[in-house]
Structures are given as C-alpha cells and as structure tokens.
C-alpha cells in the first residue's frame, strides 16, 4: 500500500511562493512544530530540560529564542511553541522523552500555516494588517495578535526585515488572501 502524500495548507503539492511589488510571500510547508506546556510546580526541571533538549533559553513573554536546530516562541504563560527543522522525526515524541513529567507536549505541526514575508515594503504591509507595533519588533520578538479576525503569530527572528506569520491552518486561504491583497495595495 502506498504511503499518503501530504499537501500544503494552501492545498498544493508544492508550497506557494509569490512576489508582489516589493514583497515576497512564501508558504513554508512541512512545518515541524510542537506545543510545550509546563506542568504545574515543575518550573526548575522544565527549564533545565528545555536548555538541554533545545539548546536555548526559553523566551520571555513576547519573545522568540532559537538556534540552528530549534526556535521557541512564547505563546502564553508557561506555554511555548517549539519550531524544529523540516523533517525532524517525531519532534513531539522526542520532546516528551526529554521533558518527562515536567511538560505536556502536543504535536502542532499541522495546526498552523506558515508564511514568511520579506522585502522592503514589509513594514508598510504589516501596519495595514496588525495593530501590533511591528516597527518596534526587533530580532527575537514574537507576538500573538489577530490579522483580519484570525489569531496569528508574528515572529521576527533577526534584524533582517523578514517576518514569519503563523495562522490557523484551516484558514490558510483567507490569511493568504489578506496578505496578498495588502501587498498589492501598497
């Protein structure tokens, strides 16, 4: 029996990559994500396990931390979203083994659609989409905020003008429409 073929959140076999004016919008398929939530009363072992498993400190509220293998986004009090390289086998399972009873882990690879946006007009585009003060977002900032009624996560990993936008996977087309229409209207 043949194994199953994955499709992207936008419904394609390959990811969508569009450049509109000064903005490039790239769908990133095959995300490898897991939610990491601290068990009550396990702060110390949780932090310790995180450092060991992810090789990075956990981000403060509103922040992202990361390295070559993992990114970590602050999602809520004692709750994080771990990003791993595409193709990482069983991220959630691996984390569960590392954290033992200190964390609740849930696979989120298919919960989100991810768009990476780059280009000189990105700041102008974001100020039409989000109430967050994206100009103040420096490298390492991550904000959960709505875009056109969809709860999204905006991440700026470094100083380069490049943002990752995570949105609800089932709303991928609506989010993509919002991004492309705005890019075309600048």
């Amino acid at each position: 029996m043949a194994s199953l073929t994955a499709i992207t959140a936008l419904g394609g076999i390959t990811a969508c990559d569009k450049t509109i004016g000064g903005i490039r919008i790239v769908e990133i398929a095959d995300c490898c994500l897991a939610s990491l939530a601290m068990r009550r009363g396990k702060a110390a072992s949780f932090r310790k396990a995180a450092k060991k498993a992810l090789g990075t400190d956990l981000p403060a509220p509103g922040q992202w931390t990361g390295n070559d293998t993992h990114g970590v986004i602050w999602m809520g009090p004692d709750q994080f979203l771990v990003e791993a390289e595409t193709g990482t086998a069983d991220l959630a399972g691996g984390l569960a083994a590392s954290f033992g009873g200190a964390a609740s882990i849930t696979d989120q690879s298919d919960a989100w659609v991810r768009f990476d946006i780059t280009g000189k007009d990105v700041p102008a585009m974001l100020e039409r989409l989000s109430a967050a003060d994206t100009r103040l977002m420096q490298g390492g900032a991550a904000v959960r905020t709505p875009i056109h009624h969809m709860l999204c996560v905006l991440v700026r990993r470094d100083a380069y003008i490049s943002f990752t936008i995570y949105g609800p996977r089932a709303s991928a087309q609506s989010l993509h429409h919002a991004l492309t229409a705005t890019a075309a209207s600048l």
């Binding site: 939610s35 939530a37 068990r39 009550r40 709750q79 609740s104 849930t106 696979d107 919960a111 609800p168």
Partner: peptide, 10 residues
C-alpha cells in the same frame, strides 16, 4: 495541573 491546547486544525 492541567494544560490545554486546541488541536482542531491539526
């Protein structure tokens, strides 16, 4: 000690 996360889209 309870943690919640939506798995609807997953």
């Amino acid at each position: 000690d309870v943690q919640l996360i939506s798995a609807t889209d997953s």
